[in-house]
Design a protein around this nucleic acid. Structure first.
Lengths: 248, 248
DNA sequence: ACTTATTTGTTCGTATGTATG
DNA sequence: TCATACATACGAACAAATAAG
């Protein structure tokens, strides 16, 4: 009796799959691999870890969901980009599910986006060189042109804010800010939040932000940021009002 | 010829597993399920989605990594808590791997934590009622007591900052702040960053923050927050210096 | 264009561990 | 103790994508 259940693996066996996950992570850490570096094939991992292909595959799928690992069909498995894609997926799903009030999630996202820009005023002003400021001007000009042509400015808007936090030398803030943008762009349309209105106001607000940075005026920048996000919040409130007005 | 490859599934076939993932998410959304609600068993999902057990299991593992789904061995599959656990796992791994300078990740985390508190000054002051302020005092007293007993204040410190952002009515900021704390607490010790030093200064800074909120003084609060995080950054710099000093 | 080899994707059957009653 | 329902794990076989000859 006391038949050893599965295979090797010492004594503690709190889910073989979890064990495999940890050992793959350990492999990457021990060998100091970088994103894009190749990992052993499934067959090699099975042999090395003494686990079946199913267990290895399930472990790899978990790591792929976290972007710690990236799998290419018919090609191989590689170290992932370590992006925040999992955060985007998770928050997006939360926004689409939203148990009670569907709009809390959206305004939370806007809070964070505004916070990153308002809270980093000093560093933004200090780090934005003339070349970047000129690029920001070009993006705002592009917005103006597109509006007069009846086109949307979603992409330009996105690039503007990315350029703003990019020179902060804080990768985490850059990616979190970008993630909030992604989630908002996916969730808002599903909740019928108009994202293409008051666009002239949006352009003006952007111009005010650039000129505040040029003038090195933190207070003016903060005011411009607030002025930029105020209409966004109003649109969320309007969509919320429509829902409460029409449906129960 | 033109043999239909797998089974049902119409024309586009971008990985059956991905299809299963989307349909499970759709099932949760369509039925407006809440965290904790039971999902169909693996066998039922196989039948309903026309996929094998392996495909369903791999899809479920991906969703479990995002906390969209939660699996209990021998019990069943349920809707997950939609927490930011994936963010914590991903950032922690990034911090442990850190290709170039290992300490950038830590200072990025501190930036975000400070940002949340500094940037929300007005709302923190507006939302902290007397009862919560008293609780904050108690936590600071606990820190003081523990230090004189030679104990660490990690847990109390964590609770203090959680209490600070809790009444903000912004679930996202609350969870992001908490996630940054989690990641820092895991990664810092691995990089030999001392987390238990200057503890008297830390207590003083906390007391200053509470009293600034009590006095309704935004500027004093901001100053206190900066004073609180300055020594944290210094410890990171010291650890970095030790590495550059001893090893190459 | 056609093979061949490698690697991941998918399926199925079987057996085991876990929780509930 | 037993039975049931469920997730976990294994292994072999075949399908599909990719790269190289």
């Amino acid at each position: 009796m006391a038949v050893t259940p599965y295979s090797q693996i010492g004594n503690a066996r709190p889910l073989l799959r979890q064990e495999v996950i940890e050992r793959i992570k350990g492999y990457i850490l021990d060998n100091r691999l970088k994103p894009g570096d190749p990992l052993p094939t499934e067959a090699e991992l099975c042999a090395a870890l003494g686990a079946s292909r199913s267990s290895v595959r399930e472990a790899v799928k978990t790591l792929a969901a976290l972007d710690i690992v990236e799998v290419r069909h018919g090609h191989g498995t590689y170290v992932g980009r370590l992006s925040l894609s999992a955060l985007v997926e998770g928050l997006t799903f939360r926004g689409l599910l939203s148990p009670e009030d569907d709009f809390r999630v959206l305004s939370d996202l806007v809070d964070v986006r505004e916070l990153f820009e308002r809270g980093m005023v000093d560093r933004i002003i200090a780090s934005l060189d003339p070349a970047r400021l000129d690029t920001l001007d070009l993006v705002v000009d592009e917005m103006h042109t597109r509006i007069s042509e009846g086109l949307d400015i979603v992409d330009a808007d996105r690039r503007f804010h990315a350029l703003l936090v990019e020179p902060l030398a804080n990768e985490l803030i850059r990616q979190l800010s970008s993630a909030c943008w992604d989630v908002y762009a996916i969730v808002a349309p599903h909740l019928n939040v108009i994202t293409t209105k008051d666009e002239q106001d949006t352009v003006s607000a952007h111009r005010a932000m650039v000129s505040a940075v040029r003038g090195g005026d933190p207070q003016a920048f903060e005011d411009a940021v607030r002025a930029h996000y105020a209409p966004v919040r109003r649109r969320i409130a309007e969509a919320q009002g429509r829902v409460h007005g029409t449906a129960h």
